[in-house]
Design a protein around this nucleic acid. Sequence first.
DNA 1: TATGAATGAGATTTCATTCAT
DNA 2: AATGAATGAAATCTCATTCAT
Lengths: 195, 195, 195, 195
Amino acid sequence: MSKKEKILIAAQELFARCGYAGTTMKMVAEQAGVASGLVFHYFDNKETLFMSAGSELIDTMIGVLRDKLADSHNGCEALGTFVKAYLEFTIENEKTFPTIIRCSPFSDDNPDLDRQKIGAKFRELIDMVEEILRQGIEDGSIVDLPVTQTAFMVYANIVGAVRTRFLTPYDIPGLYDEACDFIMRSVCTPKGINL
Amino acid sequence: MSKKEKILIAAQELFARCGYAGTTMKMVAEQAGVASGLVFHYFDNKETLFMSAGSELIDTMIGVLRDKLADSHNGCEALGTFVKAYLEFTIENEKTFPTIIRCSPFSDDNPDLDRQKIGAKFRELIDMVEEILRQGIEDGSIVDLPVTQTAFMVYANIVGAVRTRFLTPYDIPGLYDEACDFIMRSVCTPKGINL
Amino acid sequence: MSKKEKILIAAQELFARCGYAGTTMKMVAEQAGVASGLVFHYFDNKETLFMSAGSELIDTMIGVLRDKLADSHNGCEALGTFVKAYLEFTIENEKTFPTIIRCSPFSDDNPDLDRQKIGAKFRELIDMVEEILRQGIEDGSIVDLPVTQTAFMVYANIVGAVRTRFLTPYDIPGLYDEACDFIMRSVCTPKGINL
Amino acid sequence: MSKKEKILIAAQELFARCGYAGTTMKMVAEQAGVASGLVFHYFDNKETLFMSAGSELIDTMIGVLRDKLADSHNGCEALGTFVKAYLEFTIENEKTFPTIIRCSPFSDDNPDLDRQKIGAKFRELIDMVEEILRQGIEDGSIVDLPVTQTAFMVYANIVGAVRTRFLTPYDIPGLYDEACDFIMRSVCTPKGINL
DNA sequence: TATGAATGAGATTTCATTCAT
DNA sequence: AATGAATGAAATCTCATTCAT
């Protein structure tokens, strides 16, 4: 693994565990096993490093989601696939996933950071949900709803469930399954669920 | 207004706007119009100030919610009241509310802060939802669900909607109304909705 | 006991335990059970409080020493009495005595403090030793020595022994007795010892 | 000279002149001609800097003493050599020596400092004296005494004399010579002195 | 590419002291 | 006499960033 990659992974783990303010460039260098100067050589400054760490994770996640969505037969099913795949991804990347949380537009960590770029990436995700909803309404598996607002609410459900799991001290067994059920009950038609 | 109150309000506004790391004690003192030493005189350190600022807001919010819930006739109605009152509170306190977001257990700001104490306060809120659900199942206005998990999901919906409104750059008209509908569709029986 | 006295005693104990820099005016006020403003009302500032605390202790000590020296029959005996009485005093006032150490001219705590006044008081003590030596040389109980230098060395012995006991982590049983013997062996004539 | 060395020397001089509390990290940086951050880069905090400054001086002193003691013929002579060499060292390093005073276990400066470590180093010195006494008793040049207590008293004499010279306002010509005589009179046999 | 010495702005915190009541 | 709110200078320490090698 190249030193640049080592730095990126160290950053992803540290930002996940310690947050933006709680992570220092020296910590990243040490965890990556390189001199602190090298971190600045590859990533100009702390913000760039943070954004790079986040971007890489999100790109990976979007790729995984697109793959899993490929062969869905109707909107309701696609929606379930999307939600389940998203939640699974958080578990399979539990050491680094909180970095996505922190650099998402839903984060309350450092409000001064420029999250426009990553904000756009997240919009992609929400647009995917909107598209799924639209398709589901058309194929009759999803009830007739305002698609934009509902897409945001589906995403809000995911955000809420993920934060409950990763950030709070509460331990709620079966929360992720219930998150999926909660969403499906709200938007799928009886026909959609039975398909 | 006493200088202690001025400091607390300044802190609530600044933590809301700039986050924990982005707010300095000097900023608080200046905004409150007092010497910096006085901030430490009343609140021993930054963390204490942050927790005090958050606690005071949460106590106020819990009081408001309890009041509004007093005269509900069934679970479904109570749930709607709870969600609407919560969301209204965020709007009526938009200058300071983000401080609650930041010191809630769902926050990704400063992971080192001791949020156990405030975590317990938030549990009060979620327990209120659980109680409402239990009552609704009994009176037939809410479908039979696992109450704990669902209470957390109801709260997760609120968290997601509030974060979308306060933190993201997305402007989604009608999101709060849709949040309420989303929840009701998921948990209320047709009878409950018609009551 | 008057509040002024309470403050002085609190100061003597705290300066003894925590040193000059390690003692704050607030600590003194709290230990004395008074408001911090009152400390400044009676003692203008920290240095004055420190000097007052030290002075009072030294005056007491000098009084005790003069009393015990009153009925000595020869120089050697007087010297023994002086040394023993001094060391006894440190033990009987172990909670406050280190304040004398700290405001003595032999102290290495805060070199900027004006210890001239108390420095003069210590010179009184050393002059007492010198006078004893002079008398002992005359009555043949003490060997012929340069009295000024030897008086300082006798005092240096006391300083060294007291510091070993009060400040170091070493626990040396019988050190004080040995200190007395060490001095007597060095300055008394065989005749003086046998008297 | 490296910047790290410059910092250490500046610290030794400043702690000697101004004491622990009276020396600020900024003063050290300025006197050393470096940025304040560099002091923290090499020495993590003020206490570490103080201990490093003290340790280095003590190590040097112990080295000098061991060298000078190498060719002594009997205990009495060795004791005289030890005392003279010690006192000489204080004069030859008068700018920095008070730092040793301040971080010795006999210091009354900052009682919170961890003096256990340096306490152990000083114990080395006192053990050297104890060994000398033991040897002197064996070879008949020193009278039969309790060696541990007497070693501490010999060291107490040195402590007292050094403090008188370096810290007090008293100017006593010939004090150091008299210190040596005082000790020898107390512990050496007539045979030991004549050897 | 890689190191780590070096900088300096800025943050938190402490605390002697003042002063209105 | 007595209180404790209020001040503000100054200290320690952190850390992103630069730069010579």
